[in-house]
Computed example of a mutant assay.
Amino acid sequence: MHEAHKENISEQEISKIVFDCALKVHKSLGPGLLESAYEECLFYELKKTNLIIEKQKPLPLIYEDVKLEVGYRVDIIIENKFIVEIKSVEAINDVHLAQLLTYLKLTDCKLGLLINFNVKLLKEGVKRVINGTL
């Protein structure tokens, strides 16, 4: 697959790697499975890239002076700077996009991909979400 250069890999490069891995998973499995199945398979593919990949990473919420362990979890975070949120839904809506943007803001990440695997063609299920400017 991809040999990633960990040093200074850009969000755009990570985005391409994630899309390629997601495409491989989608071609193999097709639509209609649970999010957890796609997450495990995508995580497996991404681990082959030698990037730092974490799944179901707890995301504490800091509100003013209070740190709340509220149970938010990022599906997949790559190199501590790129978030992948996985869905298997009829359609992506604004709330899904807003959720990913909130996760990006809470982690200071600049870019994330929202991937809905429940589509005929994967490219129709992928949305880029940008926090600020890249």
Results as ranks from 00 to 15, higher is better:
6 K>D: 07
26 H>C: 03
62 I>A: 06
93 N>S: 04
102 T>M: 13
22 A>Q: 10
29 L>T: 05
29 L>P: 04
16 K>R: 13
31 P>M: 12
98 A>C: 04
7 E>I: 13
79 E>G: 10
51 L>M: 14
91 A>N: 13
47 K>I: 08
11 E>H: 09
51 L>A: 09
37 A>L: 10
6 K>G: 15
40 E>S: 15
5 H>K: 14
52 I>Q: 12
82 F>Q: 08
114 L>M: 04
49 T>F: 03
2 H>P: 09
3 E>S: 08
66 V>R: 14
71 G>L: 03
117 F>N: 02
68 L>I: 15
76 I>R: 05
130 I>V: 15
103 Y>A: 00
134 L>D: 05
75 D>Y: 01
41 C>H: 07
69 E>H: 09
26 H>Q: 08
88 S>V: 12
40 E>D: 14
86 I>P: 00
118 N>K: 15
17 I>R: 09
14 I>W: 10
1 M>L: 12
134 L>A: 10
12 Q>N: 15
98 A>F: 04
118 N>M: 07
25 V>F: 07
77 I>G: 00
81 K>A: 03
68 L>H: 12
84 V>T: 14
115 I>K: 02
65 D>Y: 09
35 E>F: 06
36 S>H: 10
34 L>K: 15
30 G>N: 09
100 L>W: 05
49 T>G: 04
93 N>R: 14
98 A>Y: 03
70 V>A: 14
53 I>D: 02
5 H>P: 08
90 E>Q: 11
107 T>S: 11
22 A>S: 15
75 D>P: 00
121 L>I: 11
102 T>D: 05
112 G>V: 01
12 Q>Y: 11
39 E>I: 06
112 G>P: 02
127 K>Q: 03
105 K>R: 15
44 Y>N: 15
40 E>M: 11
5 H>S: 11
29 L>A: 07
82 F>G: 08
84 V>Q: 07
3 E>V: 10
89 V>R: 04
101 L>T: 01
14 I>E: 08
128 R>E: 06
125 G>C: 05
83 I>K: 02
11 E>K: 11
3 E>M: 11
119 V>N: 02
107 T>W: 01
74 V>Q: 10
80 N>K: 15
85 E>F: 03
60 P>R: 10
125 G>I: 08
130 I>E: 12
4 A>M: 10
110 K>M: 01
43 F>H: 06
32 G>A: 11
21 C>K: 14
51 L>V: 09
48 K>R: 13
85 E>D: 09
72 Y>L: 13
15 S>H: 07
